[in-house]
Nucleic acid binder design. Structure first.
Lengths: 345, 345
DNA sequence: CGTTTTCTGATGTCCGAACCTCAGAATGAA
DNA sequence: TTCATTCTGAGGTTCGGACATCAGAAAACG
């Protein structure tokens, strides 16, 4: 509200350095035609006065518009639906910041499709966020985008070997380990089998979670035996069938870890078998379903990666990269959330 | 980068509505002198075109500077030190957004001091964030600030009965319940005593955590008996003495829950008694110490409220309130984080 | 019908930085 | 010393909106 406290402007810096506004501007924007000694005087003045350029004014003057494309999986997976929703919110926010988001939904399981979709984005966008499949064709497409000057961030699932600018998502090995520790500790001394259900090992995030999980259980909870991983393709019917069979065939089943989606099917199977109270069930992604399952005691913990955070983080990374603004990388780390019945949001 | 995609400006809205720029401006800024029918035409045009005012331009034009004061406890408590540090970071960020933060450190345990410090802020700031003590004098001071047009948010510890604009912090009852469930489940069937250490019951957040914790243990884990709460004043020496005594005098001690600070003292006592591996120890606030204790297995879980999030959230709430901008309240909820050894950031 | 009163349009300035041009100063080389 | 190169200063324009002023149009009123 106050108009009293006046900011330090470039004018002030120029005066302090004993140069003109134009020169100060040249130094700060790296334009040619300033002697080293003069540039140093300006930089000194910036430091002395603690000058911070006014972001609002800079963006306005630049008058640029940034176009981003978010490439999301086509499937009807709950988490991906939530992510798409959050991307829409983010778009809304970006609209007040000279940036626009288009969303493109493609079949993630088809590397060729994904790769050519990505390549079709060249020249039409300034930045791309993609839920990527770790496949050579996709990696090549990402590198092509990067080479043509488009900023690429991977979202949720990474392609570490590519030239992507940034990965926005959790460490999935750590997430799997977290699930392992929770099951191990909740089982506390009990002996028996633990079921493991994955969507598909072709997805890097699923494979990593599985790895982290089995690593912890094998290493630290020898009383618990991890059964062979079952593929669910993230479908409720299949997870239900798998869970039912496990409950039937493994009488010593102590816990279940679902690496992917399809928790509803598992919950149904557990309820049907009347095992809600003693079977430990841990899964991923906080949704209406899973929070209900937590409250009812069917699920014991949910490991979550916040869709809203990821969407906003991707947008911030792209925006600040394109606008050449600094980024607080520490703020952009996506955390592995653990939700119990008691700390639901 | 692209200059092609042009934003929708107020100009466009005015043209679409068939009015002049001045009239469109009057409608959007609620200035008098526009007939209802005309105003509706403008609003329709806004909706049709999906006009979103350019925040950067608006702030620039307004040319206002906002002054905020963060009132933090004077003590050397680790969490509060981290919070102060994050407030400094936030100040840095705000400086590029026409806003300035001063930090004021006062003795929280003295309601009179806190209240008069708050009242001294009247007229000098546009917004105040305060780690508040829930006391009538403090509540009155907050209400005075609010009445004189200053936006007040409570930080970390709330004063629910006051007219504060917003509370930035976690639900501490839920945090206590979370600790209770973790201890209950990690103890899994064991029978015995659980020690409870609080900084001081005078702090609302400590009292609430204690309440949530005992509620869960009493209700759901009857095999675990919660011992009488011990006051530590958040000091390492006292927590160490308390923990040592509990370890000595309660041979059936299964777990320890520290509601406040001073985890270092407890860790020392546990290590000295050689009980790291079997005693369950849960505390609050992720610091260098506590994450080390997690890794070493001395602590079993840390419940955290992110200092950076809270500081930034408070700043965003104050800024958007003062600038009359909309707020995504869903984004401003502070979560109760659970950290195990495996999901440390 | 004329006269108030109430609207509306036209126009301008300002915010702080980005980016541009051009004239003149300082510097270097010949 | 002269001429060609750098530098540097001065000035302007632009971005999109906030806010102000004033003249003229339209509506309300007696």
């Amino acid at each position: 509200m106050s108009r009293g406290v006046s900011r330090i402007t470039l004018q002030d810096v120029a005066r302090e350095a004993g140069v003109s506004l134009a020169t100060a501007d040249r130094v700060l924007n790296g334009r040619a035609g300033v002697r080293g000694a003069t540039a140093d005087r300006v930089k000194d003045a910036v430091a002395r006065l603690g000058y911070r350029p006014n972001l609002a004014a800079a963006r306005l003057a630049r008058g640029e518009t940034y176009r981003f494309c978010f490439v999301l999986p086509a499937g009807a997976n709950v988490f991906m639906r939530m992510l798409a929703e959050q991307v829409a919110n983010t778009a809304n926010w970006l609209a007040t910041n000279n940036a626009y988001i288009d969303t493109l939904r493609v079949d993630v399981f088809a590397p060729e499709t994904l790769a050519s979709a990505l390549e079709g984005l060249i020249g039409r966008y300034d930045g791309v966020a993609v839920v990527a499949l770790d496949h050579p064709r996709v990696r090549a497409a990402i590198d092509d985008l990067t080479a043509s000057g488009i900023a690429v961030v991977t979202l949720v699932s990474d392609v570490p070997s590519s030239h992507r600018l940034h990965y926005v998502g959790i460490d999935n090995i750590a997430a799997g380990r977290t699930a392992g520790t929770l099951i191990g500790r909740f089982a506390a001394g009990r002996r028996g089998a633990v079921g493991l259900i994955v969507g598909t090992p072709a997805l890097r995030d699923h494979a990593e979670r599985q790895f982290g999980f089995t690593q912890v259980l094998a290493g630290e909870y020898p009383a618990l035996k991890v059964l062979a991983a079952q593929e669910s393709l993230d479908e409720d019917e299949r997870t239900e069938a798998i869970a039912s069979r496990l409950l039937r065939e493994a009488p010593d089943l102590v816990g279940l870890y679902n690496v992917g989606a399809g928790n509803r099917g598992i919950a149904a199977a557990i309820s049907a078998a009347n095992r809600a109270s003693d079977l430990i069930f841990i899964g991923h992604d906080l949704t209406e379903d899973t929070s209900r399952f937590l409250l009812r005691g069917v699920m014991d913990a949910v490991i979550n990666q916040d869709a809203g955070h990821q969407s906003r983080s991707a947008a911030r990374v792209l925006l600040s990269h394109c606008a050449g603004e600094p980024l607080l990388s520490e703020q952009e780390r996506i955390r592995i959330d653990i939700f119990l019945r008691d700390n639901l949001p």
